[in-house]
């Protein structure tokens, strides 16, 4: 993939990611999140991970985002009124986040493989749905089953927590 496209999608993803955090209107945040994830899935595809890219769109844009928007509408959340910001906490939080980023930059710099350009694949034909699926049902069978239990627990949880109450 050409660097221009990479930087374009990365830029879209980061700008809208930042918009999620900066927007004061939850609906705008949620919509920014959708765009951000679109950019992310484009990056996945640029990495030849077509399956993951599509799953990303399906699960996040299709399901998770709808859930978020639905809840925001249900609760009728408006633009929040401007609250007094605790300046010390704000600056402190910003500093911690910045420090984390600097640390990540250092670590990337230390990683020898980071300068590596795209290695070419041995086979041109990508069959990643097949490969991921095969791994999932053979080698990763046990974690896969555990994920099943996890989803069951989540289902029970959602039912228990949002069952209608008698008033």
């Amino acid at each position: 993939m050409s660097p221009i496209l990479f930087w374009l999608f990365a830029f879209v993803m980061l700008v809208f990611g930042a918009a999620v955090v900066i927007n004061r209107n939850p609906i705008a945040s949620a919509l920014s999140l959708v765009v951000c994830f679109m950019g992310l899935s484009a990056l996945f595809i640029s990495l030849d991970a077509f399956f993951i890219g599509i799953i990303q769109v399906l699960v996040y844009a299709g399901a998770v985002m709808v859930l978020f928007l639905f809840i925001i509408m249900l609760l009728d959340l408006r633009v929040e009124e401007r609250r007094k910001i605790n300046l010390v906490a704000f600056v402190g939080g910003l500093a911690v986040a910045f420090a984390l980023f600097v640390q990540i930059c250092f670590v990337v710099d230390q990683l020898g493989a980071a300068k590596q350009a795209f290695p070419s694949l041995r086979a041109a034909k990508m069959d990643d749905v097949h490969n991921v699926g095969l791994l999932l049902f053979t080698n990763y069978n046990l974690p896969f089953q555990i994920i099943g239990v996890l989803v069951l627990v989540a289902t029970i949880g959602v039912v228990v927590l949002s069952k209608r109450e008698l008033r």
């Binding site: 993939m1 990479f6 640029s46 930059c105 990337v108 980071a114 590596q116 795209f118």
Partner: peptide, 12 residues
């Protein structure tokens, strides 16, 4: 060309 480091920085 795009490098691994660039992806990692973006993700970071």
């Amino acid at each position: 060309m795009v490098t691994l480091g660039q992806y990692l920085i973006v993700s970071g």
